[in-house]
Design a binder for these strands. Structure first.
Lengths: 147, 147
DNA sequence: CAGCTAGGGTTCGGAATCCGAACTTTGGGG
DNA sequence: CCCCAAAGTTCGGATTCCGAACCCTAGCTG
């Protein structure tokens, strides 16, 4: 239950890593970004058991990543929508996808395309230096341990 | 075992999401990027059981994300180092950290700093359009489903 | 040379999670 | 009145995880 005590060292990387590195959470997020909002749709799109889905959705809701919004398809039901905090995970998913395109392409390609709404261009993710603007890889960065 | 049959739809996002969305994998990766290389060091830094650590390291090795390199501290031992494929996951971790800084700051901040080796500047991640160069968020992108 | 130590594992029993299938709840339609 | 849909809940069995102990081997230590 305590997704948090899973790390010795609590930092702004280990905390999200512990949350999103729990089974199903990344896949749930992917599904949410693809537009899925309802319980039944998540359940059939991913192949997750209903009980675990209930629990993961609840976790996301109380982490403030999804929000439970009523909609009426005759009577009151709820759907799950990304909050601002959730939408802000976009770069993470884009980085994952970019990596996947390069290193895990499953032969028959991907199942969806992404394009900039305004100009139709492709989406890219990059890491860069805020000072000199140069593009950065793991080797260009120095880690300084604190504490 | 089959981290792969966990998704209905195999794409370049769901595949990495299934791999990295397994318990411990993201945290293991973080640790690797922080410079940890040896079994014992992983084991004591994270609070993972030895048997699961063995298994996760093996998975990463046969996914080609880590590579097992002999080193001699008197006799032959092995350490785990990021491969090119592994290092290429850097943007994913940076995106996670950026999100963590904004949304999950644990009050006492983070445990390490990152700076561009050459100029000392800060590291940033951004999603942008390859055509017009504009910065993109989730709302600026259109998803087109294929198949 | 007997014994200890370090590093990197393996083994194993019990605890925590997950799965799948069935069941529940509530309002609307036929 | 019966059935359906959507969103859960329950529960027994299967998996996975945990923690602690054990294994193996070369090199020190005395």
């Amino acid at each position: 239950m305590s997704r948090v005590k899973v790390v010795d060292e609590l930092c702004t990387l280990s905390l999200p890593a512990a949350l999103l590195g729990e089974r199903w959470t990344l896949l749930l997020l992917r599904q949410a970004f693809l537009g899925t909002r309802r319980f039944e749709d998540f359940q059939s799109a991913m192949d997750i058991s209903r009980s675990v889905l209930t629990e993961r959705l609840a976790t996301f809701v109380d982490e403030g990543i999804l929000r439970r919004v009523p909609y009426k398809d005759s009577r009151t039901r709820y759907e799950y929508r990304l909050t601002e905090k959730g939408l802000d995970l976009y770069p993470v998913l884009m980085a994952l996808r970019k990596w996947g395109d390069k290193w895990m392409a499953p032969a028959d390609g991907t199942s969806f395309d992404l394009h900039h709404k305004d100009c139709g261009g492709d989406v890219d993710v990059k890491v860069e230096c805020t000072a000199c603007g140069e593009g950065l890889g793991a080797r260009d960065v120095r880690v300084t341990r604190l504490r």
